[in-house]
Amino acid sequence: MSSVLLFFQGLEHSPLSVGLRASEWMYPLVNTLHILGIALLVGPILILDWRVLHRRATPPVAALATVLLPVARGGFGLAVVAGSLLFITRPLDYAFNTLFQIKLVCIGLALLNIALLHWSKAWGLAIKDNQFSQSVRLACGLSLVFWLLVLALGRLVGYR
Rank of each mutant, 00 (worst) to 15 (best):
G124I: 03
F87C: 09
I88Y: 06
F100H: 08
K128A: 14
V80I: 14
L20D: 03
I38V: 07
F8Q: 06
A39S: 04
V67K: 14
G83Y: 01
A122R: 09
G158K: 10
A72Q: 02
G141H: 05
L78F: 00
L104M: 14
F87A: 07
A139N: 01
I47C: 07
P28V: 14
W50K: 07
V150W: 05
S84E: 07
I107R: 07
A79Q: 08
L116D: 03
T98K: 15
V105G: 09
P70F: 07
A39C: 11
G75W: 00
F76Q: 01
L48M: 13
R160H: 11
N130M: 13
L153N: 07
V150T: 01
A39L: 07
L104V: 15
R73C: 06
R160V: 09
L11V: 03
V18L: 14
L112A: 12
A79E: 05
N130L: 08
L40K: 01
S135Q: 12
L86A: 01
I45Q: 08
G10E: 10
G10L: 04
E24L: 11
L53R: 10
C140K: 06
L151I: 02
M1A: 15
R137C: 01
S2F: 10
L41V: 00
C140W: 03
H54F: 13
L144M: 14
G141W: 06
K103V: 01
R51N: 09
A79N: 13
W25E: 02
F87Y: 13
L125Y: 07
A57F: 12
G37A: 01
I102W: 15
Q131R: 15
S17F: 00
L85F: 04
L46V: 10
N113Y: 11
L48Q: 14
S14H: 03
I47Q: 08
R55N: 10
V157G: 05
P59R: 00
V80L: 15
S3K: 14
Y94F: 13
L78R: 01
T89C: 11
I35S: 08
F96W: 12
G141V: 02
Y94Q: 06
L53N: 06
L111I: 10
G75T: 00
L149H: 09
M26C: 04
H13T: 12
L36N: 05
S17Q: 01
I88F: 03
P70V: 02
K103A: 00
K103N: 03
A63Q: 11
G108I: 05
T32D: 06
L92K: 08
L16I: 14
L46G: 08
L116F: 10
S135Y: 05
L6E: 11
R90G: 13
Y94V: 04
I47E: 06
F96Y: 15
G108F: 14
L156G: 09
